[in-house]
Amino acid sequence: MNLIIIFLSAAIINNYVLVQFLGICPFVGVSKKVGPALSMGMATTFVMTLSASVAWLINHYILSSKTGLGLEFLQIVAFILVIASLVQLVEMFIKKMSKPLYDALGIFLPLITTNCAIMGVALNLVTKEYGFIESVVFGTSAGIGFTIAIVLMAGIREELELADVPKYFKGAPITMIIAGCLALAFMGFAGMI
């Protein structure tokens, strides 16, 4: 039951993009077409799940002052290094193991290092004091939430190609305003839990 609540909360009610403003750069940058947006969402979910579990292990056994060595001040440095090297590892692994998957996710993987949603998940699971399983579920759900938001946005932007947008509002400004409307819609979920 607890896990279901974590899932609903991270994926929909506190959606990482539309409610917590994490991962806005890829959300604006890679949301022109539904296909690439979906690949980006999947790649992000994958890395987020992995980095959530690794971040939990590092925090629990090394950084935490209760269960580890009490090196909490190294948190930022440690997490960013873990995420950057993890992305690199995942890229090499996928390239070797599965060519189709690499072709689908390949170019998006390096972009993920600078996605603040990944770092956000790592920092959040420490402040929320989740256990290992909860952290993994939390990472996956946050990734699914990101995918929902970016695919919805890409769907709307494909239709927008045909719309008559004022000249100075083409591109980023109209994307922001649409994101605002989506965020309004997501506020409707706020009372669910």
């Binding site: 509002f169 922001m176 305003i177 506020m187």
Partner: peptide, 22 residues
């Protein structure tokens, strides 16, 4: 002061900046 306001205000600001530059 809720999330939608942030997106909409920033969108309008960027649009205005484009307009002034033009």
């Amino acid at each position: 002061i809720l999330p939608p306001g942030a997106f909409i205000t920033l969108g309008l600001l960027i649009g205005t900046a484009n307009w002034i530059n033009a």
